[in-house]
Design a protein around this nucleic acid. Structure first.
Lengths: 165, 165
DNA sequence: CAACTCCGCTTGCAGTTGCTAGCACTCCAG
DNA sequence: CTGGAGTGCTAGCAACTGCAAGCGGAGTTG
């Protein structure tokens, strides 16, 4: 036979066990939703890569993008999930297209393009022949610059170039 | 009389000037963007129109989209500015593309030209993100010039597009 | 050495987003 | 008439976003 005090203590213990159990399942649920955190981290990592490639400090990029540098820091580390507007601002600061960051952030689907950019430009009926030539020249210039700046890419790109030729 | 090489070199110089000009105009375009409130109302109106056309109640769309109906109501009336994720959910409920709502919301620019060329440039691993952005801006400029310089071509391009499909 | 500038980050907070609970209204069946 | 189902909306609130103020550290200058 329990005293009223003992009964209440038992109940409180039972409540605590229930809370712990529920809290545990919540933790498990959080673990089941890593895709959101992974996406936040993905765009953050990507932004940091682009910033690093451009040899720009976090503060400078934040200034150029018109966002606060602490917030940019948090975004890069995946602690915050920026809005599309902020992503567009960061893209502008990085001088890259907003779509790129949207894709990394998972809010825009990546369209698979023609593996051969040269062929795509050549067959584009929305362009005059002169403009095609200009774009192709610029494209080749950029590809050469890319080769010069990242030798590791050397092994994949010439192969692609030969296939198109 | 210029040789083709000389012509192309001249064009590359012109291209660089164009790129600089385009980069400048991008900043101005941002300033010319419609106000946030107007954009919120625009996407809200658009959502209501699409919902009305589909003969779906607000609650049904909210259910299909997986958002709360009061919130959807507020979005439609321009009282709230939904995130890209919410827009994507609403688009799914409406069975339209998310890009459509992003465009109405002003977070995604409508692209001119051939989507295949755009996608090819975007996914080309031989280019840095910055160079991709430059090429895409230039491509857009040329497409617009192409449209402006031969309006008759406007009627042939979609036809050509159908033929290739 | 101190003072300064720059670096990336922490913390607290105001404003915003998206939700739940509930409201008033309309229509229809019993 | 009442009760139920559906409609779109109001109001309050928790969680989140993006910011400003400030920190500790590194490097430079006088």
């Amino acid at each position: 036979m329990q005293t009223p005090g003992e009964f209440v203590r038992d109940q409180v213990t039972t409540v605590r066990e229930t809370v712990d159990r529920v809290a545990g399942s919540v933790v498990e649920t959080v673990h089941d939703a890593p895709s959101v955190a992974a996406v936040s981290s993905q765009v953050g990592d990507f932004i940091r890569e682009q910033r690093s490639a451009a040899r720009v400090s976090l503060r400078e990029l934040a200034r150029n993008a018109g966002v606060s540098n602490p917030y940019l820091s948090q975004v890069e580390r995946g602690l915050r999930k920026p809005s599309a507007e902020i992503l567009a601002s960061i893209a502008r600061g990085l001088k890259i297209s907003a779509e790129t960051l949207y894709e990394q952030a998972g809010i825009l689907d990546r369209r698979s393009g023609n593996p051969d950019t040269v062929a795509a430009i050549r067959s584009d009926s929305a362009l005059s022949e002169r403009h095609k030539a200009v774009l192709l020249e610029l494209y080749e210039t950029y590809v050469r610059e890319h080769l010069a700046s990242s030798p590791a890419a050397t092994q994949t790109i010439p192969t692609s170039s030969k296939e198109s030729a």
